[in-house]
Design a protein around this nucleic acid. Structure first.
Lengths: 166, 166
DNA sequence: CCTGACCTTCACGTGAACGTCAAGGTTGTG
DNA sequence: CACAACCTTGACGTTCACGTGAAGGTCAGG
């Protein structure tokens, strides 16, 4: 047992194993202000809890899947932190106007996040569709070869067979 | 006129202006094997045509939108080039077996591209959905404030599915 | 043919994102 | 308490993707 509570705290090497990051990378992210370990041991070992794990997985996703820089990721996480603080403020205030303002602020932040992600996703989708179109075209030719020189593709292929100048 | 044909050829600075890249970046991409200028002037100036422009825009998309490294981009473009050459070979050969082989090769390349892109897109989509879920939760709170403490989500989110963690 | 704006090829500099020792301290198991 | 296995903080090295001169050649207008 590591804690007065029942939480399992992990050392950096275990965290590295679970997240697929290196210990150096984890320390570097701390250095860059992306996270702080939940605790330190008596001898100053970094100790991480479950939420740290999730945070690192999230960071990894932003880095690998969305291709964000660490600077952008820090910005996103800071936005997240502001939202968190606003949530607290939201709970403790009774003023409906302030509550509305806090939620609207949070909405704006997430709107920006989603906009960023969706712009990337849209471009990716366009590229995928382009590639798929080429694939369908190839399938048409394969069918031609397999089933004899049929003038039109029997399968559902792209709209114009000779259009893309293959 | 720059060419024996009617094509307008651009110098590197004009290309930079149109693509939003710097001249250094364009030269660097050439150095990395991502493109070759369509021609050189008598005094060895780089001269680019319309397809070079498109290629650079495409590269920029892969870099900025999909977050690919230049190495990955080069791989994608090389695959594309191989496909192009195979297409030529396809047109000039009469051998059905060779034709089949060429198409199958092309299909493999396209499949690999699609796999790469889809993996990225899927994870991006997951992140977007996560953000949207937080947003819907927030919209619920907004509706509560606007319409009194109603326990059920009465609002339609509209075209912009925004919102954030509560 | 002169000149200023643009271009060429080196070549070194830079910031981001880590990798990789080095020198020493901490943990926990026998 | 001995000791291997893990951790700490530096601090320097590396790769990628360019930025930034330097030294000189080219192009178009006057």
């Amino acid at each position: 047992m590591n804690d007065t509570s029942g939480r399992r705290l992990l050392r950096i090497n275990e965290v590295a194993a679970e997240t697929g990051l290196t210990t150096r990378t984890i320390r570097y992210y701390e250095e860059m202000g992306l996270l702080e370990p939940a605790a330190r041991s008596e001898g100053d070992y970094r100790l991480y809890d479950e939420s740290d794990l999730e945070r690192l997985q999230f960071i990894r996703g932003l880095r690998d899947d969305a291709g964000f820089s660490l600077a952008q990721i820090r910005q996103l996480l800071e936005d997240e932190a502001v939202r968190e603080r606003n949530r607290e403020r939201f709970r403790t205030t009774g003023d409906p106007d302030e509550r509305r303002a806090l939620i609207l602020d949070a909405r704006e932040r997430v709107d920006r996040q989603i906009e960023l992600l969706e712009a990337k996703a849209a471009r990716l989708a366009a590229m995928i569709e382009e590639a798929r179109a080429r694939g369908r075209h190839l399938d048409g030719h394969l069918a031609e070869l397999d089933g004899g020189p049929a003038p039109h593709p029997g399968r559902l292929a792209g709209a114009t067979p000779a259009g893309t100048g293959e």
